[in-house]
Design a protein around this nucleic acid. Structure first.
Lengths: 217, 217, 217, 217
DNA sequence: AATGAATGAGTTTTCATTCAT
DNA sequence: TATGAATGAAAACTCATTCAT
């Protein structure tokens, strides 16, 4: 009777049928299916399991989707964290983030989608947030890994700005949203090309964070 | 038979029952009800009219809500445009925008809600966008009135940045989103107080747009 | 408050708005619209009058349509009666009936449609029947004018069969239905061409009614 | 997900809930309920199942009713085919058909009802026809088993008429409609009693098909 | 007399959830 | 444990009828 709590350290701990459901939801998100449009049958069918089985593991449809979304975010940010580790300079890291944002938008995994999920006032939003608030997930959140990026870059001396770390995090976040919005509007209301946009953002960041040109790629 | 097109210059042109519906939707939005959770009955009941009446004016539930959302955005941005006129300096204007964002978030009229409505790939999103694309509404869109702000400030010499206007618009937009996100997360994941946040954003903008300190408030 | 009784000797007695409704229904029938699919609005709109006006003249939608159907049948059979008068021999008369059936089917005014209306057990059926039972309409009914044809042809000596007139009427009726069914199935389940079909039916009638070949066309 | 195709060789292949629905529709038809007046709830309630269950098996209400009608026709004609097998002479067969028509009319399962369903131009009509056109059902159609009757009787020498089989089929069909119409009008417009009617029809058939008196019952 | 805006009862359809196997 | 058939509450939408003007 005790149902699944979606938090797992790694895939091996997740019951295979649950993992299949998570992956099904990720696929559906990648295909642009709206959260509100996900049906239990769509998920279990895609996962190759019976509809009733979903209720062996979860209390309700919302639990299924919320856990899957959290899993999805966890995977994405884990991936990003891993990529971050591989980059040596701050700007290489930020470039990578912009690459990922571009890729994500090309698929339908928009950043705004997740922001929306995390900020609308719905019951589902509260559910996802409450799951994320469990300490295990905090480190994966954009704000947190951006903070890590900045702390490290300050230590290495790449960033010489004296502004508070929290401020710099917000600034980076804003620029990420900026870039993402650009793609989300798919050119409809903004009259700049992607390369220019990107160059502007890079320049702005280097200016704001006072990053010496010699250190950037 | 010919159904309502939601575009109206002012409230007096809108049939009273339609106006009642629009206002009902605005109320519901203010109360934090999700777009997806709005039922025809909820709207008409709140509007004090019969369920069937809604279909006298609109083709479908989606048309009702999409038109109401457009109306809602129109009112909000009309209000902002009016307030903008009253401000003399660029930073006064931007401060006002932040004030409005703060107020809006205090209600549930989050900016992200509208961004989400305009950027998720759903049919409803396409519907709202197509309505907004009618020329009458373009001037009301954030990107457009931010552009106006920048153009004016460049003319007055407040802004001395040489970056393209489109880029600067995006930058402003990003900072607005930044500030909004801060409230949308209601302190849950960001460890800064509102005043600091605001000061940081102001500093960042003045730096990026190269606004002379002497000109700001 | 006293509503219209649909029985009228001629069009001049019918209030113009009612006549407009009757004609609208006839048009709709000609266009193949099913009785069950006729909406009050469709009718009044086509008639060029207001929806409420319909209820000034009739108690209910069913009354409107039933009266219109009766009017429609009246017109059709009046026309046929007039044509019958012009023909000299029995077989000329019957040929004319087959011509009319063919024309009617080419439009969508199928005979079976009326037979169905008169024979399904629905409330609407009872309503139409009760209207037809008013003496004014009896003479217009197929069974009745077929009887007239037979009586006349017996008097002129064209028909020499000794079978009861009622039986012969039924026989004619059956052959008419036969021919009509042929068209109603538009070739789908019957493997004969129209000309053969017609020739067979003519032969069968002449045989059954014992009509001397010399008398037929 | 894959919905029912209404074609089944025998009842045992039909899922029990579907069978219950079919039987419910048959009952309703027997009670004189019009096709257009059948509601999903009426059917499922009568069938003793939940409303949602209907949609587990069928795509839409029209599919439910169309399949049930086809099932109904199949049962009726199967029964008639079986009865036909038991009869030795052609006229015994035709008498049986008239008996069945009489019984069917006494219930409300009028022949005309089915003819109407098969000949009005409605979408429902097209649906039923398309189902009937699947080869499995052709043999059950009246025109086809009348043809079989005639072919057999020609072989046995009962029928000596040289007219084409298709013509004779049409003639029989017409006489069946004749007899059916007689009952459908329940005496309202025809002034003959059933026995006389029947005798006339028998005589007419024996005359037309040139059936030797000695061979008939 | 004529209108058509307003209505709400009645219908179809969807889909999360249950539960017998 | 896993299943999927069965369910019915809930939602969108239709349209005959009313009634204030």
């Amino acid at each position: 009777m005790a149902k699944v709590n979606c938090i797992f350290e790694n895939d091996r701990e997740i019951p295979p049928k649950v993992l299949a459901m998570y992956r099904a939801v990720m696929e559906l998100i990648n295909e642009g299916v709206e959260i509100a449009d996900m049906k239990v049958f769509t998920i279990t069918d895609r996962a190759g399991i019976g509809k009733g089985t979903a209720y062996e593991y979860f209390e309700s449809k919302d639990e299924i989707v919320a856990c899957a979304v959290v899993y999805c975010m966890q995977r994405i940010f884990q991936h990003i964290n891993e990529e971050l580790e591989k980059k040596e300079t701050f700007m290489d890291q930020f470039d990578m983030l912009m690459d990922e944002a571009e890729k994500a938008e090309a698929q339908k995994v928009s950043f705004f989608r997740f922001i929306h999920i995390l900020t609308d006032g719905s019951e589902f939003c509260k559910l996802v947030r409450s799951k994320l608030n469990s300490e295990h997930f905090e480190e994966y959140l954009p704000l947190n890994f951006m903070k890590k990026m900045i702390v490290r870059a300050k230590e290495t001396g790449e960033i010489t700005s004296q502004a508070s770390e929290d401020y710099l995090v917000c600034f980076l976040m804003a620029q990420m949203m900026n870039y993402t919005l650009f793609f989300a509007m798919d050119g409809e209301m903004i009259d700049v090309d992607a390369a220019t946009m990107r160059e502007n953002i890079r320049a702005s960041i280097m200016n704001e964070l006072k990053i010496g040109k010699t250190l950037s790629k």
